[in-house]
């Protein structure tokens, strides 16, 4: 069992139709075991009352669902326009040249994270990080430390709502 049936039941009660459970349960499965297993797909299919093949098909549509376990340190670097203009490609190349990349940690590229004011932005596991530079990201993928947490990130953006220059 990947999912907790009691929790599934509770989630089902929130939606008018059961098939809406597909995405929330895929997230739940991924939170629990790190990825979406075949077993999870069968459980979700049963809970949401859709064929398992359809759940599989849905998984392949969304880039954030994984079918295998990721490494412990996972950095996703935005390479969309604002971040590219800030040097994202070089950063990714630098990180990928480091020993251990692909095994102990992974460096993936992603599209705009809606944090372009913090270019180069990234997701370290589930936390938004940025602005990233090579030194900071190196620390991050080695031991997951050294970058402002997401809570700070949010207020950074907020401070700028006023005028950005700290007036």
């Amino acid at each position: 069992m990947v999912l907790d049936p009691a929790e599934t039941k509770e989630m089902a009660a929130r939606y008018p139709e059961r098939r809406s459970l597909v995405l929330p349960l895929l997230w739940r499965a991924q939170e629990r075991i790190g990825y979406v297993s075949d077993e999870a797909i069968d459980e979700i299919a049963a809970a949401a009352d859709v064929p398992a093949s359809e759940v599989s098909s849905v998984v392949t549509f969304y880039t954030m669902f994984r079918r295998s376990k990721p490494p412990a340190h996972r950095l996703q670097v935005c390479t969309s326009l604002s971040c590219a203009m800030a040097g994202a490609d070089d950063l990714v190349a630098g990180l990928r040249a480091m020993p251990g990349c692909g095994e102990r940690f992974s460096v993936e590229t992603v599209e705009c994270l809606a944090a372009c004011d913090r270019a180069i932005a990234g997701l370290y596991n589930e936390g938004l990080v940025g602005p990233l530079d090579l030194a900071g990201s190196t620390k991050l993928v080695r031991d997951g430390a050294g970058v402002a947490g997401p809570a700070k990130a949010a207020s950074d953006a907020a401070a700028r709502a006023e005028g950005g220059d700290g007036r």
Binding site: I41, V50, P51, A52, E54, S56, S57, T60, F61
Partner: peptide, 21 residues
Amino acid sequence: HERNIVLIERGSHMTIGTEGR
């Protein structure tokens, strides 16, 4: 109302096939 053939992946990678069997 079956799903023996489904879409897999998306965009230019999209293809059709059986999933899981």
